[in-house]
Write a protein that binds this DNA or RNA. Structure first.
Lengths: 335, 335
DNA sequence: CTGAAAGCGCTAACAC
DNA sequence: GTGTTAGCGCTTTCAG
């Protein structure tokens, strides 16, 4: 039966050893299940530990065993965005399988903050870092090499730097969306995109444009709207597009937030334009939105896997995993 | 200009001191911006640190300064669920203001796993723990007292144990939903609820029942369905309810996942029953779903605040913060 | 202003 | 099987 009231300072291994009447090292061996400890001794030590409410000090152990922790960091945007939280979910699951813990920090889409968070995590001696950078050219990419920590870039590869990355097939997905709308007979197709400075947005935008050019359709060009960064702005921008004298007959939104914003603008419209969105989202099936879907949880899982392999010692050249996309027709893209 | 290729072992403060030609302690003072260091010395040390690519070892510092980290743990269900990720988002933001980092772990709704994760976090000497327990009576509540770490319970208070908690006004919200539907003239009102073993579900269910009794309406009783734990099951259960010879004319779903599942079942129904859902969710406005809304991000923020105050030394009695709810009529609850 | 010594709690070597 | 000694990288005494 536990006796002590929770003390101000947690008990140390030394105290456990003293109580069990053995040496420090023997206590250590017993609690770590190492061989060469007699059963009786082990039992005595365990009991002493229980009585004292002893908990191993992971900090001390990690310092001693090499100065690295069992922690992996994830630097991303706000977890309230389902894209980031899906990645976090997949990463956490995979890491847990290897006894690693995930620290999540929010860069607030600000690269200065991102750098300082990076420092904080490196100081804590995380074993690896998963990063969804606030921008492709962000200082984080530069810092990555300097810190002696494996980096895995998610969704947005660093510019001018080979590194482990997990990417979505942005070009393929955007092309599929473009071709789907073109096949539906559309010509005046609006493109509503997020911050152009991120590599993933760039890839989507340029692949979309390429598909239009390949089809010999220049009519989309007046309807490009970029750097639309949240749902509310998307609602406004789409509203403006629809109010044009010659409004677009179709819409391609390049991420889930923009698609949702667009939906708000389309509500109650008698003849809404066709809509295809990049990223699947909850309720897209109920609302009937055609999307370019991909497995966001798998994105996180794959990133964690690459990180884990680096931790386990893989020292080969950087690898890139590409997550495929699928166009799911649900009505909005087929009208 | 940095010279070294990233070395296998990160440089230590000792090496920085040697390079700068000062003692260990002086280097420490210089880098920590302590007073009583001459400007010239400080500059020399900083330069040496830069050249070596020196990064403070947070593990060692924390061990020396008291064996606690700057980490706060959050044990919850899968972050892919927007409820949990919203809480994580709010908590992370608030903690960051105080220089604390958030470690998120997923209990997979399994209390055995939850206990082991708890141990892992305590061993890492987290400064506080935010917990959304997998169940009210889970062992975590018992363990909480034993560990010498501040606990904050989110959404689900422990049974038989006073502890810092942040709760949603479950009873008030459920009552509002019930009264709203009753005021609409409904009598045969179905209740679709999640796992009864969680305190929050219990509160919602019993307040709903109490409101029905208060209104003298027993007609809801045949339509109670509990322990519906995911959207897919909710879809099936609601489908079954609607197929009854005398189907309910209204539906109350007790969390976001169940509401979404219900929506799938209602799709394409000519005369869908009225629907009120607990928890707001993305696109609820577009789909026109009446909900009992509350600020989930604030839930996390409030929890982090309580934790931070404990860390800062507050030693008073446990406190409970209740987050209010608002019923937002959007159409589905008014038909 | 600067330095030497001690030690946070633990584990790795090497005795016994 | 068990104990002793050292030391992970840092900060905290306490002397200069």
């Amino acid at each position: 039966m536990p006796v002590d009231e929770s003390p101000a300072r947690p008990p140390t291994l030394n105290e456990v050893a003293a109580r069990a009447g053995v040496s420090l090292k023997t206590a250590s061996r017993a609690l770590n299940g190492e061989p060469y400890v007699s059963g009786a001794t082990e039992r005595r030590v365990r009991q002493a530990a229980d009585e004292l409410g002893y908990r191993l000090n992971g900090l001390a152990r990690e310092l001693r065993t090499g100065g690295t922790s069992a922690l992996v960091g994830l630097i991303s945007g706000d977890l309230a965005n389902p894209f980031y939280s899906a990645v976090a979910s997949g990463a956490e699951r995979e890491l847990r399988r290897h006894g690693l813990l995930l620290i999540t920090v929010n860069n607030d889409e600000d690269s200065a903050l991102e750098s300082s968070l990076l420092s904080a995590l490196v100081e804590r001696r995380v074993r690896a870092l998963l990063v969804i950078p606030s921008s492709g050219g962000s200082p984080i990419a530069v810092g990555a090499k300097a810190h002696n920590v494996p980096f895995v870039f998610v969704d947005r590869p660093p510019v001018g730097l080979a590194a482990d990355s997990v990417l979505i097939d942005n070009a393929g997905g955007a092309r599929a969306a473009a071709e789907h709308l073109l096949a539906g007979g559309h010509r005046r197709i609006a493109l509503v995109a997020d911050l152009v400075r991120t590599a993933s947005q760039q890839a989507r935008i340029s692949a979309f444009g390429a598909a239009m050019r390949a089809a010999g359709n220049p009519d989309w060009e007046p309807y490009v709207r970029t750097d639309v960064h949240d749902a509310a702005t998307a609602t406004r921008v789409v509203g403006e597009l629809l109010a044009l004298p010659e409004p677009p007959t179709a819409l391609f939104t390049t991420n889930n937030q923009l698609t949702i914003g667009a939906l708000r603008a389309l509500r109650g419209h008698r003849h809404p334009p066709a809509l295809v969105g990049f990223d699947d989202f909850e309720l897209a099936d109920v609302v009937g939105v055609t999307v370019v879907a991909h497995d966001m949880v798998e994105l996180g899982r794959a990133a964690a896997r690459l990180a884990q392999e680096r931790i386990a010692g893989y020292a080969g050249p950087p690898r890139t995993v590409v997550i495929p996309t699928t166009l799911i027709p649900r009505g909005s893209g087929e009208r």
